[in-house]
């Protein structure tokens, strides 16, 4: 699996620094679970952080009472034994963590709700006033009605594929659209396309019917 479309340096580094909103952080974390290249970039940022921390020689010496408390803590953890370690969940899963946690399970076990045109969604609960996140399922070969954007839209493919503006997007790929983009992504023919969509403003549908439905479905 080769990922061709990434989240972008700025978003990745903001995720690393902890300055990105929760919904977009969820998308970046799910992309990172699938993308060794972006993890390697994040590790580069951490290497810089580690080097800066290492070079800090002004700090007062360690507090031995904290160390004592830690060692006591470790001792009682050992007493409880390693049997307490949680059993690893059994795959395979379509949704990587942390997505399953937000959705409450993997794709097949979710309560999908129709938004029209065969497209179904599962809204994900994130905090903060900014962006919102939802899982979308687009039937194989079908298109999302043509729409523009008031803000930014990022779409991470989790199953199947979609075609948009000259490129294919497959599992792990992230499509980014901003207010300059009006598009009509089409799901690949092989299977239903499952993706995570994060938007920071409602979409602007071009045709009248989805526009009329929009207030009810909230996309």
């Amino acid at each position: 699996m080769t990922i061709e479309h990434h989240v972008g340096d700025e978003r990745l580094l903001a995720y690393g620094a902890g300055t990105l909103d929760e919904a977009t952080s969820l998308l970046v974390a799910a992309h990172l679970a699938l993308c060794p290249a972006c993890r390697s970039d994040l590790e580069l940022a951490e290497a810089v952080g580690g080097a800066l921390m290492e070079s800090d020689r002004l700090a007062p010496p360690a507090d031995e009472t904290v160390l004592d408390a830690l060692v006591r803590c470790i001792a009682c953890e050992d007493d409880e034994g390693s049997a307490a370690a949680a059993a690893a969940p059994l795959g395979p899963f379509v949704l990587p963590q942390p997505l399953r946690g937000y959705a409450g399970g993997d794709v097949a076990g979710l309560r999908w709700r129709s938004v029209g045109g065969g497209i179904r969604q599962v809204p994900l609960k994130t905090h903060g006033a900014g962006a919102t996140a939802r899982l979308l399922s687009i039937p194989a070969g079908k298109s999302v009605p043509e729409h523009g954007h008031s803000g930014f839209e990022a779409t991470l493919v989790l199953a199947g594929s979609f075609y948009d503006r000259g490129s294919w997007y497959r599992r792990g790929d992230v499509g980014i659209a901003d207010s300059a983009v009006v598009h009509r992504p089409v799901a690949g023919p092989e299977e239903d396309c499952i993706c995570l969509a994060v938007t920071d403003a409602p979409l602007k549908f071009v045709a009248a019917v989805p526009r009329l439905l929009q207030p009810f479905h909230g996309i």
């Binding site: 699996m1 909103d21 799910a30 690893a88 795959g91 963590q97 399953r100 946690g101």
Partner: peptide, 27 residues
Amino acid sequence: ARNRSIDAFRRERRPEFDRQDPAFQPD
């Protein structure tokens, strides 16, 4: 330390990937 401080000092959650997850794509 950075992840702990982000969890402690910011209001919104900051989800993380999990290397132990079966759906994780290894290096």
